[in-house]
C-alpha cells in the first residue's frame, strides 16, 4: 500500500501511523454530554466502502485525512488535516 503524502508524495505504508476514522477531527465541546463523547470516541460508521481516516506521516509529521475504500484499498484522495483550520 502506498499513500500520497500531500507534503512528500507517494510513500510506502510503512512510513505512516494510523489513527482511526476522521470523526476524530470533530471534537465535541467539553460539556457536550456523554452521548456526544461516546459517539466521538467509540461509535463508528465503519463502512465497507469509502471512508475517511487519519494517518500520520512520521517523517514529515503531517497528519493526513485519507479518503479511501476499505474493500479495495484504493486511495481516492489525501489532504493535510491542518488545512481545515489554518
Amino acid at each position: 500500500m502506498r499513500i500520497p503524502c500531500p507534503c512528500c508524495g507517494s510513500r510506502d505504508r510503512r512510513e505512516f501511523t494510523y489513527y482511526g476514522a476522521s470523526v476524530f477531527l470533530d471534537r465535541p465541546a467539553e460539556d457536550a454530554g456523554l452521548e456526544a463523547w461516546d459517539a466521538y470516541l467509540h461509535l463508528r460508521d465503519n463502512p465497507a466502502g469509502v471512508t475517511r481516516d487519519l494517518w500520520y506521516h512520521d517523517p514529515c509529521q503531517s497528519w493526513i485525512e485519507v479518503e479511501r475504500d476499505t474493500v479495495t484499498h484504493a486511495i481516492l484522495s489525501t489532504a493535510p488535516v491542518a488545512r481545515r483550520r489554518a
Binding site: 476524530f24 477531527l25 503531517s62 488535516v81 491542518a82 481545515r84 483550520r85
Partner: peptide, 19 residues
Amino acid sequence: MRHMDFVHQAFCADWDVRL
C-alpha cells in the same frame, strides 16, 4: 509527539505554535 501534532493540526492549526 504524534498526539501533540494531532491536537495542533486537527484542532488549532491556526495557532502560532511549532513542534
